[in-house]
Computed example of a mutant assay.
Amino acid sequence: MLTRRSLPALLLAAPALAQDSYPNRPIRVVVAWPAGGGVDTPTRLVSVPMSRFLGQPVVLDNRGGASGSIGEAEAARAAADGYTLLATGLGIVTNPMLLRNLPYDPQTAFTPVSQLTSAPLLLVVRADHPAQSLDQLLDLARKAPGQLTYFSSGIVGGPHMTCVMLMRRAGITATHVNYRGGSQSIAGVMGGDTDFGFSTLPQAVPLVREGKLRALGVSSPQRMSSLPDVPTIAEQGFPGFERAEATSLWAPSGTPPECIARLHQAVVAALADPDVLARLEVLGMTPVGSTPAEMAAAMAEYRSFAAAMIRAEGLRQE
């Protein structure tokens, strides 16, 4: 986790680059998810201080759909010159496991820049849903196996995998409804098209506070300071239950190391910006600012976890 004390050391560790070498024109960030969700929001927050640090505009280009694979394919086609980046979630790890005929291989098409944030997920139902608690939701599911529906914003992405984990441990079944992105999945549960699901914080927290959604639990080990009345999943009979979504920044493979170093330096500086930190705290998101090597190790760990879950659940390619 990024801390205020670690910032000077990280900044000094980055190679010194001439101010007029890179960048000397705007940088495009292909956001592989729709606007307003768990990937777009932190990326948008850091883009402004990154622009100031780099001395060039950092422009977001939302290309959502197909569990992030549309935006990922767009970024994979870009020149490896440091002027096109990719912001996405954990779907980049699992997409090749479940989506057929991808025009790119995430393990070879991209190189890590930095993980921006880590964030738990909220288990939510619509405000007038009969389930007032996690126990009540599970009771409803046990009484009608497979009849309740749960949403996700992408197959085998963070929200989907977290829901699968909970259902497996609870011994229940429900029908999966996969949406194009977070905004669509939230609209579905609010409209009564689905019963429950895990949502990213930028989508869910404002609606919970407004009384339009009911939060039944959070996937973090401790309660969120921004929603202290929402219990963790772990404290409701599932000890050790913990999952988090990650928003990460990538570059096309072959991007010069000095560009990667400069971009990482900009991410670290942006995540130390007081306005960014304040907004992330309100949302319940944790700044990370990992090095490329640390990010690569974290993604490899998630890849092993996801592969095991896919085998256990018998999920097939689409």
Rank of each mutant, 00 (worst) to 15 (best):
F53I: 03
S21M: 05
D40Q: 11
F151K: 06
R243D: 15
L137D: 11
A244M: 13
M97I: 05
T43A: 12
P239Y: 05
A87M: 03
A144T: 12
H176G: 08
P145W: 10
R63P: 01
H129T: 02
P96F: 13
T94S: 15
L207W: 08
T94G: 09
A261K: 06
G192F: 10
A127F: 08
L60C: 08
Q147M: 13
D273H: 09
L140G: 09
G55A: 01
P26N: 01
A296N: 03
R4I: 08
S51R: 01
A204V: 06
S133V: 11
P106G: 07
R279S: 09
R223T: 14
V125G: 03
A87K: 04
G191P: 04
R28M: 07
G289W: 06
T194H: 14
A307D: 13
P42K: 09
A174W: 01
E313A: 15
A308K: 12
S253Y: 09
P145D: 07
D229K: 13
S253I: 06
D135G: 10
S226R: 00
T111F: 02
I70E: 07
V39M: 00
P103S: 12
W33F: 14
A272T: 07
L116G: 03
D128I: 11
Q317V: 10
A266G: 10
Y150S: 03
I27H: 08
P112L: 15
H160Q: 02
R243P: 06
A204P: 05
V268F: 07
D20W: 01
G211K: 00
G38S: 15
L90F: 00
G188W: 12
P130Q: 14
L140M: 15
E245G: 15
D40R: 09
A14W: 02
G64I: 05
A298G: 00
A293P: 00
Q107W: 12
E294S: 07
R303K: 09
L45M: 08
V46L: 05
A308G: 10
T162L: 08
V29G: 10
V218M: 05
D229M: 11
R142F: 11
F53E: 08
A35Y: 01
Y150E: 04
I310V: 15
E281A: 15
P206W: 10
L271N: 08
P231I: 02
G82K: 08
D139T: 12
L227S: 03
L166P: 02
